[in-house]
Design a protein around this nucleic acid. Structure first.
Length: 286
DNA sequence: TTGCAGGGGTCAA
DNA sequence: TTGACCCCTGCA
C-alpha cells in the first residue's frame, strides 16, 4: 500500500472497492457528514478527519502518515480484499445487483464502546434522531476537537461516563434508552461484560455476552459484532432486512429464526457484509 | 393547528 | 407471544 503525506493530509494510492458515500451512508455509522464537495467529515478515535476519493486514491485530510498506518487503514478496513468476498457471492443474482449499486462499501472497524452505545440508541428510532442523540452525548461528555473552523466532539470513553445516572442524560432526550445507556456503562466499567475481549470469542458466545446488557437484543448485538468486533458472519436483522429477505429468499411467512439460519448457511462467513450490500441497495431504492 | 401513526427493537408479563 | 415504551417526525 503506497502512502504519501503532505500538508496535513495523506493520500493512499490504488485502493479498490471503496466509495465514501457507500461506506458512510450505508447505515453502519452515525458520525460522518457529507460536505458540499462530496467529501465526508467525521469523528472517530478522538480525531476529526475528512475523507474523499479520486478514482482509486483515498485522500484523508487533517491527519499524518502515522495515524493513517495506526488508525485509519484499520478503521476503513483497507487491508481486506473485498474482491474475494464479492467473488464468493457471484452466483447470487440479488447480491450481484446490490453490489453493482453499492460495491464501494467497506465495513468499518469502529470503536466498540461507541458502537455499542450508538446502536442501543438506534432502537425504534430514525437515523437523523440517532445522529442527534449521539452528537449531544459527545458534546456533553466528550472532548472538544477543532477542525476547519468548526467544533467537533469526540465520543466519550466508558471511563468518562462512569457513574452517570439517567438524570444526567436528560438533555439527550433519549427516552427509555437512557436507562439502557446507564446499564451499559456500568457493565462495561465494572467488567461484568468485557467488550474488549469479544473479538476472541465465537460469534454466538460474543452475542450472548453483549445481550447481558439491558437494551441489547439480537439485532443490536449483531450490529456491534459486525461493525466493531470483526465478526463478518454476524447478520443483523431489522425490519428492512426482514422485508428484503422475505421477498428475495425466504418467503412471506419466514420467521426471524428462519432468516437467521438461511443467512448463515447461504452467505456463510461473510453474511454480515452481504447484509450491508442488500440493506443499502434496498434502502436507497425502496 | 392538532392528532395520530410509526420509527434500523427490547423488555416484561 | 403480545403490548408498552420515550420522543420525534411526517402527514393528513
Amino acid at each position: 500500500m503506497e502512502i504519501f503525506a503532505k500538508n496535513n493530509s495523506v493520500v493512499i494510492k490504488n485502493i479498490k472497492d471503496f466509495n465514501p458515500t457507500h461506506t458512510f451512508m450505508c447505515g453502519q455509522c452515525f458520525r460522518w457528514d457529507m460536505e458540499d464537495d462530496g467529501s465526508y467529515t467525521g469523528v472517530a478515535h478522538g480525531r476529526v478527519v475528512n475523507v474523499s476519493n479520486i478514482e482509486s486514491d483515498i485522500i484523508i485530510k487533517n491527519t499524518n502518515a502515522d495515524d493513517v498506518k495506526n488508525i485509519w487503514i484499520n478503521y476503513l478496513d483497507l487491508n481486506r480484499d473485498y474482491n474475494i468476498i464479492k467473488n464468493a457471492f457471484s452466483n447470487d443474482v440479488n447480491l450481484k445487483q446490490a453490489i453493482d449499486f453499492g460495491g464501494g462499501i467497506k465495513i468499518l472497524n469502529q470503536d466498540i464502546f461507541e458502537c455499542l452505545i450508538s446502536f442501543i440508541i438506534s432502537t425504534q428510532n430514525g437515523i437523523p434522531r440517532i445522529k442527534k442523540i449521539v452528537s449531544s452525548l459527545s458534546e456533553l461528555f466528550g472532548e472538544k476537537v477543532e477542525y476547519g473552523g468548526r467544533t467537533y466532539y469526540s465520543f466519550p470513553s466508558a471511563k468518562s461516563l462512569s457513574g452517570i445516572k439517567e438524570k444526567d442524560l436528560e438533555p439527550l432526550k433519549a427516552g427509555y434508552r437512557a436507562g439502557y445507556i446507564v446499564d451499559a456503562v456500568q457493565k462495561v466499567v465494572n467488567g461484568d461484560v468485557d467488550i474488549y475481549n469479544l473479538k476472541n470469542l465465537s460469534t454466538s458466545n460474543a452475542r450472548c455476552e453483549l445481550m447481558k446488557i439491558k437494551g441489547v437484543g439480537p439485532k443490536v448485538a449483531d450490529c456491534v459484532l459486525l461493525f466493531s468486533a470483526g465478526k463478518s458472519d454476524a447478520f443483523p436483522i431489522d425490519v428492512w432486512v426482514q422485508r428484503i429477505m422475505r421477498s428475495l429468499y425466504c418467503g412471506d411467512d419466514a420467521k426471524i429464526k428462519d432468516i437467521q439460519h438461511f443467512a448463515s448457511s447461504h452467505f456463510g462467513e461473510y453474511a454480515g457484509i452481504a447484509q450491508q450490500y442488500l440493506f443499502y441497495y434496498a434502502r436507497e431504492n425502496n
